Amino acid sequence: MSTLLEVSGVSVTFDGYRAINNLSFAIGEPEMRAIIGPNGAGKTTFMDIVTGKTRPDEGQVIWGEKNESLLRKSEAQIVQAGIGRKFQRPTVFEEQTVYDNLQVALRKDRGPLAVLLDRPTKADRDRIEELAGEIGLSDHLDTIAGTISHGQKQWLEIGMLLAQEPRLLLVDEPAAGMTKEERDHTTDLLKEAAKTRAVVVVEHDMEFVRRLDCKVTVLHEGSVLAEGTLDHVTADQRVIDVYLGR
């Protein structure tokens, strides 16, 4: 497994508060990784840095086989390089059908003229049906996205990200607000995705993390506090003191 993303010695300060403190983190391809930690640990800021939303004060963020610096790329260029991010609240086009949401997300030329002249091909339709099957929404392709459940909207957004064919998927608290059945399906969906790409999941639900069955990175005060299996990190007294013991 080769290293896909390497964050090295990254720090960032907001109004005197150091949100990320000399953080180093690496993930391979394919790989599943869970990130846990207390509020304020730097989990969201870490994702903001990787996706170009926040620029660090120091350090490097290196991407892919060519060892490209993501810090030299815009947010749009980072997406084009193969990094997809799912925020905690699902953001789908609620007045459009599930099919239309998946169609608009397909990885294609998105220049103004290309979008204007775009007509879905048979390959596009086959890919949309394939994605719908993967996310469990095959029976809802003609359903208006605003009418499906919260969990189904989460799956649709994951499907929209997969449609972009990212090499790295960043997913923020996907289990929030879901039923147990929805959480189980979401786990299966992410584990399947991680067979062919890197998937980083930020989550507070320890049972959800356990089902992911992957390496866990614990952040605290903007740095890596512990890393290893879930059993390993949850037995670490430092992790108990700053996170689990609360």
Rank of each mutant, 00 (worst) to 15 (best):
V115R: 00
G52K: 01
R55Y: 05
R107L: 15
V92D: 05
D126I: 06
D109K: 06
A26L: 14
S24R: 08
A81D: 15
S24A: 02
A41I: 06
Q103D: 10
E65A: 14
E29V: 15
I128D: 03
Q60W: 04
S11C: 10
S11T: 15
Y99K: 10
A123W: 04
V104N: 05
K53I: 15
V104K: 03
L102F: 09
A41C: 06
A81W: 11
R18L: 13
L4I: 04
P56V: 01
F25I: 11
T54G: 07
T45A: 03
L23C: 04
I49D: 03
E58S: 13
A105E: 10
P90H: 04
L106V: 13
R110Y: 09
V115G: 01
V98Q: 12
R110N: 07
G40A: 09
G42V: 02
D124S: 09
T91G: 03
R55Q: 07
T51I: 10
R107N: 12
S24V: 07
Q96C: 08
A105D: 10
G9H: 15
R110P: 01
S24K: 09
Y99L: 11
V61S: 02
Q96A: 14
V50T: 09
Y99T: 03
N21S: 15
K86D: 05
P30L: 15
A26C: 12
F93V: 09
F87V: 04
Q103M: 14
K43G: 03
E75C: 13
M47I: 14
V7C: 06
E68F: 02
F25D: 02
L23M: 11
L5K: 00
E31I: 08
L71W: 01
M47A: 15
I49T: 00
E95T: 14
Q60D: 12
V115Y: 02
L113E: 08
I62W: 01
Q80P: 00
G28K: 06
E94Q: 10
V104F: 10
Q88L: 13
I27M: 08
P38H: 01
D109W: 06
S69G: 07
A41W: 09
S24I: 03
G37N: 04
Q103F: 04
R18S: 11
A41H: 04
Q88E: 10
I27K: 01
Q60R: 11
E75M: 15
I20D: 05
A19E: 04
R85V: 04
T97C: 07
F14H: 09
M47Y: 15
D100Q: 13
L113A: 12
F25R: 03
P30Q: 12
Y17K: 08
G82V: 13
S69H: 09
V98P: 03
G37W: 05
F25N: 01
A34M: 09
L4K: 00
D100K: 13
E95V: 13
F46Y: 06
A114G: 14
D124F: 11
N101P: 10
Q80R: 15
F87L: 12
D48H: 14
V12G: 05
G9F: 13
I83R: 01
K122S: 09
